[in-house]
Amino acid sequence: MLHFLAFLILGLIAGAIAKLILPGKQGGGWLITMILGVVGALLGGFIANAVFSVDTSSTFSLPSILFAVLGALIVLVIYGAVTKRGSRV
């Protein structure tokens, strides 16, 4: 249970950092930021393990945070493309 809570906090931090890095205005509040960050952390962890053979099992280690932010950036770009495409209808 504690690991799950730490993962949610990591997702919120990664999502917030990704929103700060990415230029422009992204919609959504803290809940959307946390969901995007958690999905990004999962994606970043997969990329770290599959491509770079980096262990990201420790939640708040530097590689975990860096790859979570990288994954959150990717997810945020996809989220922005999907929501903009839907609003042009």
Rank of each mutant, 00 (worst) to 15 (best):
M1Q: 06
M1K: 00
L2P: 07
L2M: 12
H3G: 00
F4V: 08
A6V: 00
A6R: 05
F7M: 04
L8I: 10
L8R: 02
L8T: 01
I9E: 00
I9C: 07
L10H: 10
L10A: 08
L10C: 13
L10K: 14
G11L: 00
G11M: 07
L12D: 02
L12H: 02
L12Q: 06
I13Q: 03
I13E: 01
G15T: 02
G15L: 03
G15Q: 00
A16T: 10
A16I: 13
I17D: 09
I17A: 05
A18S: 13
K19V: 15
K19S: 15
K19F: 15
K19Y: 11
L20R: 05
I21C: 04
I21K: 01
L22K: 11
K25Q: 13
G29N: 09
W30K: 08
L31D: 00
I32T: 13
I32G: 05
T33Y: 05
T33D: 02
M34V: 04
L36Y: 07
L36Q: 02
G37K: 05
G37M: 12
G37C: 15
V38W: 06
V39D: 06
V39Q: 05
A41F: 02
A41R: 02
A41Y: 03
L42Q: 14
L43D: 03
L43M: 06
G44D: 07
G44E: 01
G45K: 05
G45M: 05
G45Y: 06
F46C: 15
F46K: 06
F46A: 08
I47V: 12
A48E: 10
N49I: 12
N49W: 05
N49T: 13
N49K: 11
V51W: 09
V51T: 07
V51C: 02
V51Q: 11
F52V: 02
F52I: 01
S53F: 14
V54W: 05
D55L: 13
T56I: 13
F60L: 14
S61P: 14
L62A: 15
L62E: 15
S64H: 10
L66G: 08
L66W: 12
F67T: 09
F67W: 14
F67P: 10
A68L: 05
V69H: 03
L70R: 03
G71E: 01
L73N: 03
L73C: 14
I74W: 00
I74T: 09
I74K: 07
V77S: 09
Y79C: 10
Y79S: 12
Y79N: 11
G80T: 09
G80R: 13
A81P: 00
A81G: 04
A81F: 06
V82G: 12
V82N: 10
V82T: 12
V82H: 03
V82D: 06
T83P: 12
K84A: 06
R85A: 15
R85W: 08
R85N: 14
G86Q: 13
S87K: 09
S87Q: 13
S87F: 07
S87H: 14
R88P: 14
V89D: 08
V89N: 13
V89F: 13
